[in-house]
Simulated assay, not measured.
Amino acid sequence: MDLTLDLTHRSVLVIGGAHAARRSIARYRAAGAAVHLVTESPAPSAAKAVEWPRSADGWRGLLSTMDLVVLVGATPAIDTTIAALATELRLWLTRERAAATGPVGHVTLVGGGPGDEGLMTVAALRALRDADIVYFDRLGPHDRLADWAPGAEFVDVGKLPGHHAVPQAEIERMIVASALAGQTVVRLKGGDPFVFGRGGEEVLACRVAGVPVSVISGVSSAIAAPAIAGIPVTHRELSRMFTVVSGHAPFTDEQLAHLVGLGGTIVVLMGIGTLPQLSAGLARHGMDAAMPVAIIERAFTDSQRTTVASIGTVVDSSAQAGIRSPAVIVIGEVVRLAHDADVAAVELLDHAARLAR
């Protein structure tokens, strides 16, 4: 279905089972069409029920009153009959895949990326298109959900720092309950579901309840936010590894020592609240006070801002700048590649190469 076509007040005939055709019906209703359903097995539906014609003339008369015909999981015989009549009547005809019709639905965890809808994957958009209900977070792209999942129900389960309006256990209960009711569920999350997104917990909840579940990966802000600020997380002869950590809770001394010992680039998500403890701990375990640090706030929004400092100055700099979540912290020499001029970057690489010899 092409939702760019103006279907307002147009008559659309959907041919198929009420449950199997529910997503098609929802999409066309959301597009403003008057939707009629003809099915051999009457069942409650959001579309106006039409009696199943018993002859070719009956089909011809019905189709002649429509602007568009939609076949959902039609048998070969019905497909052949309707296609011939649509050609005869010069009527638009489209075929659509039937929605899941089992007693238990399906849950798909979808990574929505860092907030830019252009970074949504094709698989993510396909899953949304087939969804009966979408549970979404505040950091995932959701402004155009009505376009991506027309006719679906939308439930905001987003969390704010220090305030979880819907507890994680309740989110898991809700998505499982929707699937057990036979619905096709999309759990839309920011970034990637398995990068500090508690996706693993939601997958386990589905498995325990016997609900089929799948995961669609998303672009993680751990890589995308530094990239849009011009910072590569790795760079030849400068950083051969990067470590992604959650700053949600303070680090232990052992963890801090390991981070310093690993070298490379450190990317911290959800780390603004623990930044003073992190910077002081890294310095205490031997990190150079001049090590550059970048903080990218609200990446991929109109208010995106990058603050560059060093391990020794980042706490004061962040306080002066009034930095707030959501933000991604990048620690490492790669920060200079975006912050300094090209000549300075070349000198930095030459210095790194000399040290490696």
Rank of each mutant, 00 (worst) to 15 (best):
L7S: 02
V12F: 04
G17Q: 05
G17T: 04
A18T: 12
A21L: 03
R22H: 06
S24V: 08
I25V: 15
A31V: 09
A34Y: 13
T39P: 01
T39A: 11
E40Y: 03
R54C: 05
S55N: 05
S55L: 09
D57S: 15
S64E: 14
V70H: 04
V70K: 05
L71E: 01
L71Y: 03
L71G: 07
T75I: 12
T80I: 13
T81V: 14
A84C: 08
E88C: 09
L91M: 15
W92I: 15
L93R: 14
R97V: 15
T101G: 14
G105Q: 10
H106T: 13
T108Y: 02
T108E: 06
G115M: 13
D116T: 09
E117M: 12
G118Q: 13
L119P: 03
L119G: 04
M120W: 02
V122Y: 10
A127K: 00
A131R: 01
A131V: 09
Y135C: 04
D137Q: 08
P141I: 07
D147F: 06
W148V: 02
W148G: 00
W148S: 05
A149R: 00
P150Q: 01
F154D: 05
V157T: 06
L160P: 00
G162P: 07
G162I: 14
H164M: 10
V166L: 07
V166C: 12
Q168L: 11
Q168E: 11
E170L: 11
I171E: 00
M174W: 10
M174K: 12
V176T: 10
L180K: 15
L180T: 07
L188R: 06
D192R: 02
D192G: 01
P193E: 09
V195R: 00
F196P: 03
E201W: 14
L204D: 15
A205R: 10
A209L: 11
V211L: 06
V213T: 07
V215Y: 06
I216M: 05
S217V: 12
S217F: 01
V219R: 00
S220Q: 05
A222E: 00
A224F: 07
P226G: 10
P226H: 11
A229F: 09
G230A: 12
G230C: 12
V233A: 02
H235S: 09
E237P: 00
M241T: 15
F242T: 03
T243H: 11
P250Y: 09
E254P: 00
Q255W: 07
H258E: 14
L259D: 01
G263V: 12
G264M: 01
V268K: 02
I272N: 01
L275T: 06
P276H: 03
P276E: 03
Q277A: 15
G281C: 07
A283H: 10
R284I: 04
A289L: 15
A290F: 03
V293G: 01
A294D: 10
I296T: 09
A299L: 02
T301V: 12
S303Y: 01
T306W: 03
V314D: 04
V314G: 00
V315R: 04
D316G: 04
S317N: 12
A319Y: 05
I323F: 10
S325Y: 06
P326G: 09
P326W: 02
A327I: 08
I329S: 01
V330T: 15
V330G: 01
I331W: 05
G332K: 10
G332E: 06
L337A: 03
A341Y: 00
D342V: 13
V343K: 08
V343E: 11
V346R: 13
E347S: 07
L348Q: 10
H351C: 08
A352N: 07
L355C: 11
